[in-house]
Design a protein around this nucleic acid. Structure first.
Lengths: 262, 262
DNA sequence: CGGCACGTTGAAGTGACTCAATTCGCGTGG
DNA sequence: CCACGCGAATTGAGTCACTTCAACGTGCCG
């Protein structure tokens, strides 16, 4: 018999609330009451070291992960033991909101570097959504954008050549990293070439060759766990990267980009 | 300048409401009031012939697609004009709910055979969700299950060999087709081998060889747009298919126990 | 009956994979 | 401070599988 766990040690925390409010505000317009309600969500903060999992395939969590610092990777574990990475998550992400409504985890979330995260009580999030529908609508967007990223990953891994695949991954990670942040020519991507292979459906050798190609043509590089953008334009061209799928529009900002193609 | 379209011709329709209620009920427990509210959603019914699109990449729809009959396919159109299929949708699916919260379509939905569909007014769905949170919670599950299917597609197209890929696709389509329905050894899949290639990231020749292999080993076949299951067990084994990701569990947490704590 | 799209099959090319050896980077311990 | 060790990156060689190309067969619809 399964017993509900009392929310021991879960308390509202300013640091978490601040970030949660700003994350939510990115997805919708919030009233003062909305903000106040968000600040009532109880959380527990913890840390993970490289390779540790925040949630595991098969779990039935009572909390949702909110990433404060570091990078998480979502992955499937195959019967053979092989790993397929599905998406990457940065500080400010809620990679786990789906667990509010789908009880059993069909994948895991593991730390790619040292990670700080908050666990938010499902029960608090549910009542937040009920009491503050505006917040609910904003939160609804989060897993929908994740889904758009999954779709793009299908296309990337199925229809693009190795070099374009890697270029597209770089574009996505870089674009998401610096969304609104000061211009910088680099961003973190703490993964080995073998792990990149497990993202893109390629061998580590192919990753290496693709990376070498991007270096040679002077569009991007990867060193010490950081993506270095050498020529953004050429990288975007190489990847056929179109950030539309990241749905930056908040409510109804116009994404002007005529659709072409057949 | 874009002008909001008046909901001309949109009316509640029993046929649509019936199906919508039962679809929603599959994702949560509904009260009588919930059912009544769902029945108030206005819809317009239309038909598509093979190859026509229900929604296109770049659109900013004011309605959500509800599939009554036939099969829809979600796809990306690449700059080269190539097509990458992302997911398939069967009668009863709401493949388009995301458009409620993400204004611009990042993909298209096209008909694989003759299709009947209803278009549901976003405005009605939004107020339904506001007025009936229980229904909102049930609807929330729909795109989340879609996302789980996307994740599985990433793994399928990136980490499995051609024969396993095809087998997995067959398993998924068959499993979803007959969810709860009378036992049958076949189900529709109205796609050419070339199109299957565009789902699985393979050439049409590879699809043909993989299909031949499945035939030879007596696990499944595809004829006249129908999957024929010859040996379900062996097909499942070949595909390493685990239906967990389809999240068949109707979520008891939400509807039956409002929320605890607080 | 004719056309066209799709399925089937064979053959050849190529690109990604595996295997293997060497180097590099960095943290540890002497 | 330097030697060592280990994981990761780099590089080359050879194999294999998927792709492309091309020809032919088949079934369906006008």
């Amino acid at each position: 018999m399964r017993v509900a766990i009392m929310p021991e040690g879960y308390v509202p925390r300013d640091e978490v609330s601040d970030l949660l409010v700003s994350k939510t505000a990115r997805h919708g317009t919030l009233t003062a009451a909305d903000r106040a309600a968000i600040r009532g969500v109880r959380a527990k903060v913890s840390e993970l070291s490289v390779g540790q999992d925040a949630v595991r395939q098969g779990d039935r969590p009572e909390v949702a992960v909110f990433l404060l610092d570091g990078m998480l990777a979502r992955y499937h574990t195959l019967p053979t033991g092989d790993r397929q990475y599905l998406s990457l998550h940065l500080a400010g992400d809620l990679p786990d909101l789906q667990s509010l409504f789908l009880t059993t985890m069909d994948h895991s979330l593991g730390a790619l570097n040292r990670v700080r995260l908050a666990r938010l009580l499902h029960s608090d999030l549910r009542s937040l959504i009920l009491k503050r529908p505006g917040v609910g609508f904003a939160l609804w967007r989060v897993p929908l954008v994740d889904a758009a990223i999954f779709r793009q990953a299908i296309t990337n891994n199925s229809a693009r050549e190795p070099v374009a695949r890697l270029a597209h991954l770089f574009c996505e990670v870089f674009h998401r990293s610096r969304a609104g942040i000061a211009p910088d020519r680099s961003c973190p991507l703490p993964m080995s070439q073998a792990q990149l292979g497990q993202i893109l459906g390629l061998s580590s050798i192919s990753i290496h060759r693709a990376l070498t190609a991007l270096r040679k043509e002077g569009s991007a590089d990867l060193r010490k766990g950081r993506i270095e953008i050498l020529d953004w334009r050429s990288l975007v061209r190489r990847a056929a990267f179109d950030p539309l799928y990241l749905h930056p529009e908040k409510d109804s900002v116009i994404a002007q980009r005529p659709f072409r193609g057949r």
